[in-house]
Design a protein around this nucleic acid. Structure first.
Lengths: 133, 133
DNA sequence: ATATTGTCTATCAAAATTATAGACTAATCA
DNA sequence: TGATTAGTCTATAATTTTGATAGACAATAT
């Protein structure tokens, strides 16, 4: 029932970028140090975030990363879905990542998981990176 | 944010046992067939459920599995915790499976995840196998 | 030029997930 | 009693996911 570090680190990194926006470009190493995360691992996460257009980068001295989208327009939901997929406890109960599983045969269980899905969605759709700063 | 098949299959199997209680001992193969699950894989799941005293078994013809605990006294929460661990989206927000992670540095995120944890707990603690039948 | 910082591609180790195999044990019942 | 049925136990294996590491390269600033 868990998120992976990809989601976790993404949320941390984006929060850090939002918090230090006025400093302009932020070095990856600052973020890695701040949270005690592997720099090289974080790099790969940043590449995904960049491809998804959440951040832009600048190479060289004084370079680093910064947000391209206002922090109040980035929901936790979209970051978690990008990194980890379904918010629902099982894909059989997922809207965006639906797949068939044996669980579908049991309607009552499905109902429980859909309610959990809806609660989680509501929570993390409504919550923005700016709310975390 | 997902459960594994161990939790899913456990819930399915216990629901099936509860539903067919009056038939006495139920063969593993019946359950495997019903849901299209590997028999051998289900076997291992049953061993865990047996060790945790949810079911008893009987070998030989006419044998199989049955519940030892009334279905209305088995919550989904305990089965999921047994099979998959934490209900919380991250162990940093878990009561039973707490571990330190970098996420702890961000209180607002932690707050969100704790609220999700509490919702999920409330939901699956309150829901019993008998409610699924 | 040189130091700084990100990019890209490959690769890898460990763990978790999802099984499969097969010999063994216990119970039934004909 | 012996054939059949059904669970037990232990090992191992395939695949995927997770969480990283390595190193050559490219862009920028001073």
């Amino acid at each position: 029932m868990k998120l992976t570090t990809k989601s976790e680190y993404s949320l941390l990194a984006l929060t850090y970028l939002a918090r230090h926006q006025k400093r302009g470009y932020i070095r990856m190493e600052d973020i890695a140090d701040q949270y005690g995360i592997s720099k090289k691992y974080l790099e790969q996460i940043f590449i995904s975030l960049k491809q998804a257009r959440y951040i832009t980068t600048k190479t060289g001295a004084g370079g680093g990363y910064k947000l391209t989208i206002p922090a109040d327009q980035i929901s936790l939901a979209e970051i978690i879905r990008l990194m980890d997929g379904a918010l629902a406890p099982t894909v059989a109960a997922s809207k965006y990542f639906f797949e068939h599983t044996p669980l579908e045969k049991e309607e009552k269980i499905m109902q429980v998981f859909k309610e959990i899905r809806d609660y989680i969605s509501g929570k993390v759709e409504g919550m923005k990176i700016s709310d975390l700063v």
